[in-house]
Design a protein around this nucleic acid. Sequence first.
DNA 1: AGACTATATCAATATACATTGATATAATAA
DNA 2: TTATTATATCAATGTATATTGATATAGTCT
Lengths: 103, 103
Amino acid sequence: MPKVKCCSNKKISSDLKKTVDFLKIISEENRMRILCILKSGPKCVCEIWPNLDLLQNLVSHHLSVLKKFELIKSEKQGLKVYYELNHKILDKYLTNFNLVLSK
Amino acid sequence: MPKVKCCSNKKISSDLKKTVDFLKIISEENRMRILCILKSGPKCVCEIWPNLDLLQNLVSHHLSVLKKFELIKSEKQGLKVYYELNHKILDKYLTNFNLVLSK
DNA sequence: AGACTATATCAATATACATTGATATAATAA
DNA sequence: TTATTATATCAATGTATATTGATATAGTCT
């Protein structure tokens, strides 16, 4: 039985893994909401978390997960930390994802 | 502080939840591999599972998860069960996903 | 019928990770 | 300096779900 391409080809297999990692990060409702909230531009945590029914520290944690994966960037301004989408990385993963599932 | 659209709007919020459910299903390496394997056409379990480094019953389980979510369809032919992508549903979720994350 | 093949189900275990509560850090204001 | 605000970290707990091993079902062949 011949092996299927996506399982034996190293490049495809690696792309698939990266895509799955990306999907794991965004397949969490609160993180997805955060990304959606940030679509309208940079926001500080105090603007983000009242939109989510979560404790502040949990929002902070989800932000750190997103940031660790480089899906968002942050900038400190005084007491506040502003987060924004990292479109470059985000687009890279979205493109890769579409490649993996497309014909 | 005004609520952000994706958090207060019922329709957008519901789309987001559906998308997250979809992403949860496909953000698992083996399930993603199964979907990729099926891109080249319908296959029986005995053609699928040698491509994955998994026990047969686990492949069967992942197939059932994908099927429960209607991402794949199945047809019994004698002893064998053939699985294939359910492009209609798959495209629906992919479209929805792109809407949720697009500007 | 019995043996064999392909697939699915079930209970038990393992593992990953979301959530909570308490607290720390860091910047600003009084 | 002390108090306050904004954000982050940490340990403990809870929860969902992937994996395993054993076994069941269902179709086919002799």
